[in-house]
């Protein structure tokens, strides 16, 4: 990156106001086993053109946290607290008429399983152009279809003009995900949330889709929230990363710094679990045990039963997310030590 670019990026990051601000997000569910808390005190903000990665293992609360933003959780059973500001509107507390204009329009989403997310009975062109008919009433049928073709071109579906009349079963997994992306960017959203967009895809197709998402973000200046369990994907795409465990943020910061010098024992454990070339002839240094279940969340630090660094206070006192360096936070009693080590 040239010096001028760095200066410009820094300037943009400072000047542009966050487009989405999540503060103290809480999600709990009423279940037959009582009330369980799935997301606890998650806060972050994202600026135009930025990519924030949410990294964690299954059940850590990644999908539930964005489900709350998008209004996808039924309540009951979900109980949602905190604030999600899109510019000045609090999506969790504003009247439905207002949030409807934002969700699916200014803030849109792609899911892991594109193949089941598409309606098998309707042509892909119809499904893409529906975005205009629903959110932009007054768009003519013909206009909407032309826009669908242009979008299919933009997401690099070959022979878009012919394939606009095809049905989802005629598309592979990778092509279906492109159609979902076309639908998600149809209204030029300010924020795109991608929940494991490539997990169901092969690695060479994953590379194509990640390249597409990055290009679209660069072209449009939209902000991208990328949910994944793959540290490699986060490391290559996200400007900043949030590592989640047991519904809480364990650490957050600029991705390059977090992977180079993690400030939380869980992040270290996660990185050690991925076999690297230089560990070929060694045993992997694993995290013992398994991620917690919501009905039996450990006391104190949620990671303490598996943590190699734990001390007696770890099972008693819950560490709060504290600043450990410029732009970096960690929820560990010994964060400074971990970072220094």
């Amino acid at each position: 990156m040239a010096m001028a670019d760095i200066a410009r990026t820094a300037a943009v990051a400072e000047v542009a106001a966050p487009v989405l601000r999540v503060t103290d997000l809480q999600v709990a569910f009423q279940t037959p086993h009582g009330r369980v808390s799935a997301v606890n005190g998650v806060s972050y903000e994202i600026r135009p053109g930025e990519t924030v990665g949410i990294l964690g293992e299954s059940g850590s609360g990644k999908s539930v946290s964005v489900g709350a933003i998008m209004g996808l959780l039924d309540s009951p059973p979900a109980e949602i607290g905190g604030h999600v500001y899109f510019r000045d509107t609090d999506l969790l507390n504003a009247p439905p008429a207002e949030t409807r204009r934002i969700r699916g329009d200014r803030v849109s989403m792609v899911f892991q399983d594109a193949v089941t997310a598409l309606n098998p009975g309707l042509t892909v062109g119809y499904q893409i152009s529906e975005m205009y008919r629903v959110h932009r009433p007054g768009t003519s049928k013909r206009d909407a279809l032309n826009k669908a073709v242009a979008l299919m071109d933009q997401v690099k579906i070959p022979s878009a003009r012919q394939r606009v009349r095809s049905y989802p079963y005629e598309f592979s997994g990778g092509m279906s995900q492109r159609i979902m992306i076309a639908m998600a960017i149809a209204l030029a959203p300010d924020v795109l949330i991608a929940d494991e967009p490539t997990t169901a895809l092969d690695v060479t197709v994953q590379a194509q889709i990640m390249q597409l998402l990055t290009e679209l973000r660069e072209q449009t200046g939209m902000a991208l929230i990328l949910i994944t369990h793959d540290i490699g994907v986060v490391a290559e795409t996200a400007d900043r990363v949030m590592v989640m465990y047991g519904g809480r943020v364990m650490e957050s910061g600029p991705t390059a710094e977090v992977v180079a010098r993690p400030a939380h024992p869980y992040t270290i454990g996660l990185m050690n679990s991925v076999p690297r070339a230089e560990m070929k002839h060694e045993k992997l240094r694993t995290i013992e045990g398994a991620p917690p279940v919501l009905t039996a969340m450990p006391s104190g630090c949620p990671f303490h039963p598996r943590c190699a660094k734990r001390q007696p206070e770890c099972s008693r006192d819950r560490p709060s997310l504290q600043s450990v360096a410029l732009g970096r936070e960690s929820a560990c009693h010994f964060a400074a030590e971990v970072l220094g080590a």
Partner: peptide, 25 residues
């Protein structure tokens, strides 16, 4: 070569020059 280059790497030193394959299998 293309398969290996497509795998995302944590460590920038392990990243290969990516060959993006056209189309699908």
């Amino acid at each position: 070569q293309a398969l290996l280059s497509a795998a995302p790497a944590i460590d920038p030193a392990e990243r290969r020059d990516r060959v993006i394959l056209q189309g699908e299998v």
